[in-house]
């Protein structure tokens, strides 16, 4: 598998981001961990002395990004890969429409990605190379009736990543869109800590990380994690609206 020497993982304290950071650290990469949760990042960093850097940061503080990004690139001695894995999914009651929650979701899942990846794109265009991995979701494939802002945020992220790929490919920059299905993270827990009921093809974050890095090192543009979700996506896309809206998910 390809080895990236210098990596930033945004959203590195938990879930897929954490698993990716650890997988890369195990491979010998130098990784800058970025997230709000300093304690969780320190716990990771302790296990990889000299290889992990900790940068506490709230992805909604967009104005911090350019300086922080430049500083991280300096401290890492360059940058070969960035992974945007920060993401939230708020719970909504059946009849709830809540702009505060909507905005927060878009801010973290989408705008934060724009802030970090725009900055990355500027750099990668200059140095003519680099890899960007965006953790989008199968949830962005169609506008289902469940968690509206989450689906919208991921749909926007997916399109953003595709545009970025088309814009940067002539500079030998690789942009990889990752669309996981169900991954066993805190996102799948109910408020009381119990796991949600219907979860098909559930995989661990570690397995997801492994599949994501494999797809990226094979030069994939888009990867479903695991791959069988591609067929679900195809079916969803083919389904006419009058059927799709009657489905209960």
């Amino acid at each position: 598998m390809k080895q990236w020497k210098r990596v930033i993982v945004v959203g590195a304290s938990a879930g897929i981001g954490k698993a990716l950071a650890e997988a890369l650290l195990k491979e010998g990469s130098s990784v800058a961990l970025v997230s709000r949760n300093e304690g969780a990042m320190n716990a990771i960093a302790h296990r990889y002395p000299g290889k992990a850097l900790v940068f506490p940061h709230d992805v909604r503080h967009y104005e911090e990004v350019p300086a922080l990004f430049q500083r991280i690139a300096h401290d890492l001695g360059g940058l070969d890969l960035i992974i945007y894995a920060a993401g939230i999914m708020r719970e909504y009651e059946p009849h709830e429409y809540n702009f505060t929650k909507d905005r927060e979701t878009i801010e973290v899942n989408t705008l934060g990605a724009f802030a970090w990846l725009d900055e990355t794109a500027k750099r990668f265009e200059q140095v003519k190379g680099g890899t960007i991995i965006g953790i989008s979701s199968i949830a962005g494939e169609r506008g289902r009736s469940g968690n509206v802002p989450y689906f919208a945020s991921k749909a926007a992220l997916t399109t953003y990543l595709e545009s970025l790929r088309n814009r940067l490919s002539k500079y030998k920059v690789k942009v990889v869109t990752i669309k996981p299905g169900f991954v066993d993270t805190a996102m799948l827990l109910n408020a009381d800590g119990s796991r949600k009921s219907f979860i098909p093809w559930l995989i661990s974050p570690e397995r997801a990380a492994q599949l994501i890095l494999r797809a990226a090192s094979r030069g994939k543009n888009t990867a479903y994690i695991p791959g069988r979700w591609r067929f679900v996506s195809m079916v969803m896309h083919l389904m006419p609206s009058f059927i799709f809206r009657r489905l209960s998910f």
Binding site: S30, P49, G50, L53, P56, E64, D75, L76
Partner: peptide, 26 residues
């Protein structure tokens, strides 16, 4: 590659390899 090490900008030229460096934003 295994010898790649990190240095911290704030420590200037005297920063030493092989240390786990914790950069606090605050």
């Amino acid at each position: 590659v295994e010898n790649v090490s990190l240095h911290n900008s704030d420590e200037g030229p005297s920063s030493k390899n092989g240390q786990n460096i914790h950069s606090s934003l605050t």
